Structures are given as structure tokens and as C-alpha cells.
Simulated assay, not measured.
Amino acid sequence: MCTVVVGFEPGSAWPVTLLGLRDEQPGRPWDPVGAWWPELGPSVRGLHDREAGGAWLASDDASARAAVVLNRREQFDEPAEGWTSRGVIPLAAVTSGLDAEVVVRTRTFNLVELAADRVRFTSWDGDALRSVDLRPGVHMITHEGPDTVAVPRVSRWAPRFVAAGRPTGEPGGADWDPWLDVLRESATLAPDHDDAIVREDEHDGIVLASLSLTALALRPDRAVALRTARLPEPGHLPATLDWLP
């Protein structure tokens, strides 16, 4: 399951910073950050899922907003018209907003919406759509929601991300090293360890693994800054990251 770390400090030069690990089936193809949805305009960018056409993470440079979706574990019956990919959710969140008629046709999800003055967490558990604004500070978000210490990797590593200090600039700067160092330390664990962040798990016969790392920073007066690195193999984080253009 995906893991996202968010730092939120309203009023600062870079009020939102995010580090996200995307967990997906290893053979599922995707494209790095780009404007893959021309119908939404050139300012909408994201990580493109070639199979379903949506995005795990999307941003709108024109409004300085971003959103990222994480899977949940609840199961319910498939709608008569079939599933709608959860990849439409981040794109809707940064453009037109969530449509309840679309939400009820998706599998369950957690959504994090990011703006300079607000970080909102929304969950869809198959029964109800619930939202809450996150307070300023550093938060670690998984399939269970934000700061859920019952999740072993949150209990172990969230305090370390808090103590490391939130990055205060565009991805790629030295101030991101403390968060990346915590992530590298976590990656010394076996990828199936309960405490691992860089993971490889099997659920219902399907293997999910951490396949990419995304760093995002948001300023209220400019486009969203995004960098993504492919991970060379499931469950492994290299010492030096090869950030894609």
C-alpha cells in the first residue's frame, strides 16, 4: 500500500512539501510527470497510468494545487456499470472537484488534496465520503489514513520524519536530504517487513511493490514543483536517486 509524508506550514515560502511512495503491480506501465490529459489543459500534470489512463498524483500549475490517491482495503460489490479507475480522482480534485456519482463507482480510496492554505484528507470506504482538514505539521498517511499509529511503519517512522524537519524548498535541494535519509534507513528492512515503507506485499494473489518515489513542493505564487524517480526493482531504494526530467 502507498505511503505519503506531508509537511504543512501555512504562510511559509513553501507551505506544502510531500514525499510519496507509489505501490503498484510491478508489470503495470506508467509514465513520469507530464501533461497527459490535453482536455484538462496544459497546466494539469501528473504520473500517468497507461493501463487505465488516470493519475496516482496530479497537480494544476495554474491554481497551485495537487492531489494524491491511496488505496484502501475495504471490498464491496462491483457496480453494474463496472469500476471507474481511482486514477480519475486526483485529476478531478485539482480541476472540477469530486463528483459523488463517480466516487460511488470507484473502489475505496484515501485522497490528500494540497493547497497553500489547506491540506484536506478524504476517505471513501464504500459507504460514506468523509473529509477532514489536517493541522499544520508533518503527517504520515497510509491506507488506514493520516497518522495511524496502529500501522507499524507509521508508529516507527513518523516520529523520525517529524524530527528530521520539513523540507523548506523545491525538490532536489539539500534540505530534502533529512527526509530522504529517513527513507533510506527504512529501506534497509526487508520489503515484506511490517515496518518497511519501501514495500513488496501480496494481497489476494496480487503482488504490490513500491515502484516510484515522488517529491512535491507547493508555493502559492507559482507552479507546483514535482520530481519523480523510478525505483530499479521492487522494494529497493538506491543510494543515489535518478530523478526523471
Results as ranks from 00 to 15, higher is better:
Glu74Pro: 02
Gly97Thr: 10
Ser131His: 10
Arg130Asp: 15
Phe109Ser: 13
Val88Glu: 06
Asp77His: 12
Gly34Ile: 12
Leu98Ser: 13
Gly53Lys: 07
Asp49Gln: 09
Glu101Met: 02
Leu98Asn: 11
Leu91Arg: 05
Phe76Val: 15
Ala52Cys: 05
Gly82Val: 02
Leu98Thr: 14
Arg65Glu: 12
Ser123Thr: 14
Arg86Ala: 07
Asn110Glu: 14
Trp56Arg: 02
Ala55Glu: 03
Gly41Ala: 12
His48Arg: 02
Asp60Cys: 08
Pro42Cys: 07
Gly53Phe: 12
Ala55Leu: 02
Ala116Gly: 08
Arg45Trp: 01
Pro90Tyr: 09
Gly97Asp: 14
Arg86Phe: 04
Arg50His: 14
Ser63Glu: 14
Trp36Gln: 05
Gly126Tyr: 06
Ala100Gln: 15
Leu57Asn: 04
Val68Ile: 02
Val119Arg: 10
Thr108Tyr: 08
Trp36Glu: 06
Val88Cys: 06
Gly46Pro: 03
Val88Pro: 03
Gly34His: 07
Gln75Ile: 05
Val94Arg: 13
Arg130His: 14
Ala62Pro: 14
Ala64His: 09
Asn110Ile: 10
Asp61Met: 06
Phe76Asn: 09
Gly82Ala: 03
Thr95Lys: 15
Arg120Gln: 14
Ala92Cys: 14
Asp61Leu: 08
Thr108Ile: 09
Ala100Tyr: 03
Glu78Arg: 10
Ala66Ser: 13
Ala115Lys: 00
Trp36Phe: 03
Ala35Tyr: 07
Ala128Asn: 10
Gly87Trp: 14
Arg120Ile: 02
Arg72Trp: 05
Val94Pro: 00
Gly82Thr: 03
Glu101Asn: 12
Val112Pro: 04
Glu78Phe: 08
Trp36Gly: 06
Gly34Leu: 07
Leu129Asp: 05
Val132Pro: 02
Arg73Tyr: 12
Val132Gly: 12
Arg73Ser: 12
Arg86His: 01
Val112Arg: 05
Ala55Trp: 01
Val68Phe: 06
Asp99Tyr: 04
Val94Asn: 11
His48Trp: 01
Arg130Val: 15
Thr106Gly: 14
Ala92Asn: 09
Ala93Lys: 02
Asp133His: 06
Thr122Tyr: 06
Thr106Asn: 08
Ala67Phe: 05
Val88Phe: 11
Gly46Cys: 00
Gly53Val: 09
Arg45Thr: 10
Val94Trp: 10
Glu81Pro: 00
Leu70Arg: 03
Ser131Asp: 12
Gln75Trp: 04
Arg45Phe: 00
Thr95Asp: 13
Gly97Tyr: 11
Ser43Glu: 10
Gly41Gln: 13
Pro42Asp: 13
Val88His: 03
His48Pro: 13
Ala62Asp: 14
Gln75Ala: 09
Trp83Thr: 00
Gly41Asp: 10
Val94Leu: 04
Ser123Gln: 11
Leu40Ala: 11
Arg65Gly: 12
Thr106Ile: 11
Asp117Glu: 13
Ala80Gln: 13
His48Leu: 02
Ser59Thr: 06
Gly53Leu: 07
Gly41Glu: 13
Val88Leu: 12
Ala92Val: 00
Asp127His: 15
Ala92Phe: 04
Leu91Pro: 04
Ala93Met: 08
Pro79Thr: 00
Ile89Asp: 03
Phe121Gly: 02
Leu91Val: 08
Leu114His: 05
Asp117Met: 04
Asp117Val: 00
Glu51Asp: 11
Asp60Arg: 07
Ala58Gly: 06
Gly82Asp: 04
Val112Tyr: 07
